[in-house]
Amino acid sequence: MADQNLDWRTRGARRRSTRTWRVRSSAAIVALVVLAVLLVPPLTNLDQQAVDLTAKLQPPSWAHPFGTDDVGRDLLLRCVYGLRVSLLVGVVAAVVATVIGTAVGALSGALGGWADRAVMRVVDTFSSVPHLLLGIFVVAMFRPGVWPVVVSVGLTHWLSTARIVRAEVLSLRSRPYVDAAISGGASRRRVTVRHLLPGVLPQAALAAVLMVPHAIWHESALSFLGLGLPAHQASLGTLVQSARGSLLAGDWWPTLFPGLFIIVPTLAVAGLGGAWRERLDPRRRSELTL
């Protein structure tokens, strides 16, 4: 084709580049975080619990880039270990919440009728109680540890996923292609498994990704309140919690760095999730078709 001798122009190039920049930096941060929590503990033989009372509450320096805490432990190392625990809790809890939410939402939407109404009333009831309160109630029933926190977050966060999945199933169920499948002799099970579930899975997966930051925050909040992980186990929440005293004394670093470790990775995950959501948006997909 004679494309070469035409003078082609593009529009909107700048908008695309800012978005790519956002996506790339989010991806880089997430990759860095994952690498750090996976590789640092096994590859280095540094002890995050190593107490050095001669070097307590040191401001950031070359030896301790994030400074040290009130018993002289290196805060960078503590942050990485804390992130490891928080991320683990966040991911597992998000998966638990998504599995429960998808199952409840899909069942509710596919069955319809009184079963749907009953399930949604239950969801409404749980939604009307603050997350954190419910979460505290759950952790209070167990000894402090990782798993109670996972259970607490999982049990309180599936509600929104269930709503999203149900709405999606309801909208898919009224599509002509479901009518066509029924007319083609497909059973109820086949319609659900082959047409409805694959349609909602991308939404559910996206909800799971966006849930990870939420779960991390939730864990941090529980630990900060002293109800989550035991104080000696580094998590971002316990780090911020134990730094409260020194903050009042004017030492800012034990609070700032764990705080940043909560905020920056969650923003990055949310950024990636947002880009993914844009790609799922049917309007954007239709731009590519003619």
Binding site: D7, W8, R9, T10, R11, G12, A13, R16, L288
Partner: peptide
Amino acid sequence: LGLLPENAETAG
């Protein structure tokens, strides 16, 4: 109308 998506190029 200038409403082409971002991956479009025009000439003329």
